[in-house]
Write a protein that binds this DNA or RNA. Sequence first.
DNA 1: AACCCGGGGTC
DNA 2: GACCCAGGGTT
Length: 358
Amino acid sequence: MTEQILQSFDVQGFQTNLIDWYQANKRDLPWRHDQDPYKVWVSEIMLQQTQVATVIPYFQRFIAKYPTLHDLAYADQQDVLKTWEGLGYYSRARHLQNAVREVVASYDGEVPDDPKALGSLKGIGPYTKGAILSIAFNKPQPAVDGNVMRVLSRVLKIEDDIAQPKVKKQFEHYADGIISDKDPSSFNQGIMELGALVCTPKEPMCLFCPVQEYCRAFQEGMEQDLPVKSKAKKQKKVHYTVLLICNDNDEYLIEKRPDDGLLANMWQFPMVPVDEIGKDHMDNWFQLEYGIDITLSAKQGDLKHVFSHIIWQLEIVTATTSRDQAADKRLRFVSRDMLDEYPFPVSHQKMMPYITSR
DNA sequence: AACCCGGGGTC
DNA sequence: GACCCAGGGTT
């Protein structure tokens, strides 16, 4: 069945038009200045689920701080998370450093160009594997991301739901069938660039498309109806009271989150799950959980933070304590100035305006 | 295959 | 506020 789809498709013509268009129109992006496999790798991890415009400043700061694979391997994880702060999906940073250390330990510091070895590294899935192999090593491996699925669903008129895992595998098969052997790097980057600049989700600019003549969706006037994609389900709401607890030294209590799950190893102000606790017992519950006596002060406001699967409804409350030490290693009293040294998720960066000197 | 992981943008 | 974008890991 898949053979049918590529039958009578002019692979040669498509490749030529796409690659020529890419060479003439590619954006000057920081990770395109050389083919250093390490930099290609970092950029592809950052670009997962993240827009190019968002990634650019992060990539530049990251490479300035960790210019080589070894610099990253020997860095402190907290510093790496701090550099990643605000970019989201922090497991990407932890997996990347884990994988880089593996490359130093097992591959003499050289990024492997073998698909099996590369794909076994933490954080490198089918897409990133193909992207690194094609862009850094010029190997004809498919790299199918959302852009590529959108372009191919239109060009080849594929009406399957791209949200399904098995459908993504089908696209990898098609991509494998049409990728250029001569210039796989430009082909893969070209098809993604096309998806980003021309074959956009809404209102694609078909009149400027270099492969319009090969596009089956365009021929049938249905480019706006593809790809087919089922919708994600709604997020659950969770209520917390966030405590901004200040001691006599004008230090605030922060805690390091667990080393797995949501926002792993990031820091935050203590959060009380009010739905379970109830507001009345908050100070009691806090003493039990944290071993610290507090006096609740005043409500400062409400914040909402939206994740892909959760919505945090946050009530910000100030409190005081006479303590300046905590028994738990994940708890710390920190001065205002020192807060900047810790990696906080964006949700808790929103608290900073409520941090004031006494 | 279903679910868990952030953050940003547009309208 | 509703909607859209988008890979990898784990179970």
